[in-house]
């Protein structure tokens, strides 16, 4: 899923300072699961903002709403009839949701309330870690199901580099060396032959290098 993290409250306050009527808009998908922008976080953030502005003697209208998704027309349409009641929307969705709302509601500022971090997994309670960079051409079949593109700090496709020490990465002793993990797993799978092959030069045109990406599926289009 998409992992997001809370923005510092000072930054959010600066973003919304000029607007008197604000809608804090949550999303019920990824950001709810990673506890950054769901209904619960919308409630907390709205309260914090109300208290802050009351303390400053500048009471604002701050409403709360959480949509099923902010990356689908269908759900974003649900606020069409109320959008004019607000000077701005503070969206706690990922960057996708913020932009999709912005495209839809041209005359209302849509401000980001979280930082979108990565595509990751919930490793343990309160800990999310990156697993994928959406490079558009998956190499996991060759690398024992562990991704060197997203998990190696140098994106080495023929690793490990000289900085791998005791299974950890040179940039951070708390970070697993992706290539140690790959080798351990290739070994467990009895596929060390795969390791001996030199991985070819990667085609990055399917990555962001090729410009904004688009998937068109005629078979599901209506």
């Amino acid at each position: 899923m998409i992992i997001a993290d809370k923005k510092p409250i000072e930054e959010i306050i600066e973003e919304v300072e000029d607007y008197d009527r604000l809608l804090v808009l949550g999303c019920n998908e990824c950001v709810t699961v990673c506890e950054a922008g769901g209904k619960k976080e919308v409630g907390i953030l709205a309260s914090v903002l109300r208290m802050h502005f009351i303390k400053e003697g500048r009471e604002k209208k701050i409403d709360e709403r959480t949509l099923e998704r902010q990356c689908d027309h269908e759900y974003l349409e649900e606020i069409r009839d109320v959008i004019d009641q607000y000077d701005a929307v503070l969206s706690l969705a990922c960057g996708v949701g913020v932009q999709f709302a912005a495209e839809k509601y041209l005359s209302t500022p849509i401000l980001p309330g979280v930082n979108t971090v990565c595509l990751g997994a919930n490793e343990e309670r309160g800990v999310w870690t990156e697993r994928c960079q959406a490079c558009g051409e998956c190499v996991l079949a060759r690398t024992a199901g562990i991704c060197p593109v997203s998990r190696c700090a140098k994106r080495v496709l023929n690793g490990p580099c000289g900085g791998s020490s005791n299974g950890k990465c040179e940039i951070n002793k708390d970070l697993d060396c992706a290539w140690q993990l790959i080798i351990d797993r290739l070994h467990a799978l009895g596929r060390m032959d795969d390791y001996e092959k030199v991985a070819p030069i990667k085609n990055w045109s399917t990555d962001r290098a090729g410009g904004p990406r688009k998937v068109v599926r005629e078979d599901v289009q209506v």
């Binding site: 023929n158 900085g163 080798i183 001996e196 030199v198």
Partner: peptide, 21 residues
């Protein structure tokens, strides 16, 4: 080549890959 990095057993394999390259 870093013979002192880990995993040690595969350092020689990596050398072989550099030769292949």
């Amino acid at each position: 080549a870093n013979p002192f990095a880990d995993p040690f057993e595969y350092r020689v394999l990596r050398l072989a890959k550099k030769i292949d390259a």
